[in-house]
Design a protein around this nucleic acid. Sequence first.
DNA 1: GATATAAAACCT
DNA 2: GGTTTTATATCA
Length: 751
Amino acid sequence: MPTLSRHIVEVAIPLPLQGSFHYLVPQHLWPLVVPGKRVLVPFGKRKVTGYLLGSSDNHQNELKEVIEILDEAPLFNADELEFYCWIANYYLHPLGEVIKMALPAGINLVSKTRLETDEDGVPVVTEFLAGGKHVRTEKFYRLRFDGEEKVRGKGREILDHLRSEGECSASQLRERFGSCSEVLNRLVKIAAVTVEEREVYRDPFHHESFGKDAPLPLNAEQEKAFGALHAALETGKFAPFLLHGVTGSGKTEVYLQTIAATLAEGKTALVLVPEIALTPQLVGRFKRRFDCGIAVLHSGLSDGERYDEWRRIRRGEASIVIGARSALFAPLERVGVIVVDEEHEASYKQSEGVRYNARDLALVRGKLAGAVVILGSATPLITTLYAAREGRLGYLRLANRVRELPMPETTLLDARGQKGATFLEPLVEAMRANLEGGGQTLLFLNRRGFATYLVCQDCGHVLRCPNCEVTLTYHRSRGRHVCHYCDFTLPAPTLCPKCQGPEITLLGRGTERVEEEVKELFPEASVARMDRDTTRGKGGHARVLKGVEDGSIDILIGTQMIAKGHDFPGVTLVGVVSADASLNLPDFRSAERTFQLVTQVIGRAGRGDRAGRVLVQTLAPEHYALTAAVAHDYDAFYEQEIVYRRDVGYPPFTHLVALTISSTSHTQAEKASEDAAELLRRIKRDCQLRVEVLGPVTAPLGKVRGRFRWQILLKGKERMELHRILFHFRAVYTHPSTVRLVADVDPVEML
DNA sequence: GATATAAAACCT
DNA sequence: GGTTTTATATCA
């Protein structure tokens, strides 16, 4: 036993603050100190929940005391803490916030104040503790003694019910007998029933039951991929793979069998999907295949449900976890395999709060855990494919569809010289023929709203967002102009806001306008639109998707969201209204994104028994992203994109880090970003790094939620050089506390 | 992020 | 002179 005169602990605080904090532990709490538990500590004038990192040897100054230790058992272990620290370092984010983000939301206590009035009506500020999701418990009743003849009425019915059914929960009884707590209390009092209070889980799937199915036979390609994965699994070492399989090539079956092999080894599996709300059928497939516990984590769950799923995982009651990006932090032990499905999806990137990319961190977690990591995609990132070619990832190819489905007939339509018509003749004809033939049509346009900008014919003034400098998109349904960056809105003006001229024109097309034009062209057709505006709220997707599935919708117009996740067997025609919207984005990945999008859209056509047709309208019909996509030729696209990336000096030939510096004060943000840029240049010179420091530049979005943001772009040929500059920078850069700094890092292939 | 204090801007 | 808004500093 150590004979300490005092016990000091190191605590991470979930606030945007650099460094950790130290507290004294009162003697009666000494035995309860375990790293990974939460503690309630005084912080300034408030009390906050912090995370115990460990004990610390003597620390000279006066310290405050820990108020309370909040957990009986630690919430994270040493391995998990190592992972959190890695993330905090890599993304330059405070450790406390990383831990908070990794743990289920809503469990922390925070002190708040409330204005009340005392007996004399004088207002007083009272402090109270809020938050702290708790374990849900429920009372379970069981028949104890049935000889009570005195019991009649509802009490009698309940006793009879308990005799036939055995144990029942309070909610089950309430469902059957209405409110009966008084009756139950009396039954307990006369000892006719026993009551026991137990923890229960809020299970999002408790109503559904799942049948069972058996593994499918693998074809030669799948067998080869599975063989490689199985062999890697048995070594028990970190092994990353790219599973490059065209739509319908049976990637999921490879995942399932690899996971089965993992479970057989006594290990667990983590499956990440871009947006689980869109893929309920995937969950069903897992539930039918496996008998073990399966936990599902996604944004649709309430905090309580999520906490319950988290606890199930922590207790080892689930061996498979399926979820969106945040599921990467599931407290699974003995992880044997991590699957990142559709690894190219941008939704793996979290761009608010703690910035991270779950696709990248899957590799990191896999490395720390010694697991097999499978990045699966029909259209992998250029960086992933390049890493595979360089031998840093195992490359598994599934080039053929499982059932020999023909690829849809795909045509590029040259829209040049067509005076901005929404639909070219061949597309209109194809839509008409498809409608008459009873087929469904998908129309794809990567732009929501009605018109993309408003311009004055007299003075040329264009309506822009006062915060972001981007043009405001007109949304007819709301009668307002909306900024798609920051959601700033403005009622639609009737006169030019600058010169008061009456000649204002709406230009550029969004899905809202396409929908209107389709309705005019085909008044007899049933037309629906699916984008972020029409699918707000819970179940918004499901409603539209159901309409397509049951055939009640003839023509569906939508943004990229219609290209993902769901299979539409009845769709025989797909029209891309304009491939240029995504091709011309000011982003070095625009060609890659367009190729992926068009390839995905093509995959939506003719998956049933009928052959499908795809028409792509564009002003750039010879662009390699489009010609390769319509020819289903990944290699052609890949070769040209690699050449382009090499010429312009972007990933995978360089690595990028965007440092965002923000503050509520414009002057501070500006000054801090200048200081930071200057410091970075000095480090670069002193350490002789071949890193480009670009900036400070105003971010395209000037002010976001009250904060002014500036950016510094770091570009380097060697990943390690970027790490060195960041490391030095963190060590010496002291910024005012109102300034925040985060790093946005491009896909990791350091492994 | 919340809070306290200081400085600047605004009010009549 | 008084009140509101904005900037800055601190938290163990």
